[in-house]
């Protein structure tokens, strides 16, 4: 099962613009995997969206899901 992860704002400095991950069951597992690969992500504030919808609790992933991680912006 493949999941595409897209990044926004300063998160791209840690993870790049986009990556593809395999063998993940749910969003909690995905988050843990990303933080183990990119420890700096653990200290960052971001919202996670699964297939264009924000995730508020652990949610199952399906094949070819797209997960987006978005940081808050403060600039005006």
């Amino acid at each position: 099962m493949q999941v595409r992860v897209i990044l926004f704002g300063q998160l791209t400095e840690i993870l790049g613009q986009e990556l593809v991950l395999d063998h993940l069951e749910d969003t909690d597992g995905l988050k843990a995997e990303l933080i183990s690969r990119y420890p700096a992500l653990g200290a960052m504030t971001f919202v996670m969206a699964l297939d264009n919808r924000t995730v508020t609790g652990n949610t199952r992933l399906s094949n070819n899901s797209t997960v987006a991680l978005l940081p808050p912006f403060s600039g005006g």
């Binding site: 704002g9 300063q10 200290a43 960052m44 504030t45 919202v47 924000t54 940081p71 808050p72 912006f73 403060s74 600039g75 005006g76």
Partner: peptide
């Protein structure tokens, strides 16, 4: 609902620190 709590101070750069392309705002 989107961002329940603010980021830590200094975590997210503002325009003065990170820069911004003028057309974006």
């Amino acid at each position: 609902d989107l961002f329940p709590s603010p980021p830590r101070a200094g975590e997210i750069s503002n325009c003065a620190e990170a820069g911004v392309l003028g057309v974006v705002p």
